[in-house]
Structure formats: C-alpha cells, structure tokens
C-alpha cells in the first residue's frame, strides 16, 4: 500500500470524523503506533544479524522493508493530522 492509498483513506476517515462517526486521532496516538513499529524494527534487525540461513534472511529483509515502509507512512500520517 502506497501513500496515495493512505491519502485516500485519510480523506475517508475525515468524512467519517466530520459526520461524528469516528474519534479524533491525535499526533500522540500515531506516535504510539510508530514507537511499536520502531521496536519491531529493532527486533527484526537483531534477528537478521543473528540469522545465518539465507532463506530466513530473505524473509527477515522483506519484513524489515515492510516495517520501514509502514514507519514512513505513519510519519506522513502524523504530519497530516
């Protein structure tokens, strides 16, 4: 999922918020999620450093890339909110 998808969802969320069907998200709430993603990133990095099997390294690198992608999106979301 790219930033354009996220932007679409944000627009949809804002319409729900305006209609009183969603709760207001504050920067702190996004920061909370970002902290968890960063913690996950740290764990994955440790596991990658310790992993010797090539197949498993590929899987872990894919996971890391996904977490990095999510962190970028979450930071964008925080700034937008």
């Amino acid at each position: 999922m790219g930033l354009s998808d996220l932007a679409e969802r944000l627009t949809e969320y804002r319409s729900r918020l305006a209609a009183g069907k969603a709760e207001q998200i504050h920067a702190d709430d996004v920061e909370f999620v970002i902290d968890k993603l960063r913690a996950r990133r740290g764990k994955l990095t440790d596991r990658l450093d310790a992993q010797e099997c090539e197949d498993e390294r590929v899987v872990l690198e894919r996971k890391l890339a996904k977490v990095d992608d999510l962190i970028v999106q979450a930071e964008w979301l925080r700034d937008e909110l």
């Binding site: 969320y13 998200i25 999620v33």
Partner: peptide, 11 residues
C-alpha cells in the same frame, strides 16, 4: 483503544 485501532486500520 478505539482511536489507536483507527490508526492501525488506516495504515
């Protein structure tokens, strides 16, 4: 917490 679940759903 509903609002944090909303953040997760957006992402």
């Amino acid at each position: 917490l509903g609002v944090r679940a909303e953040v997760e759903r957006l992402l």
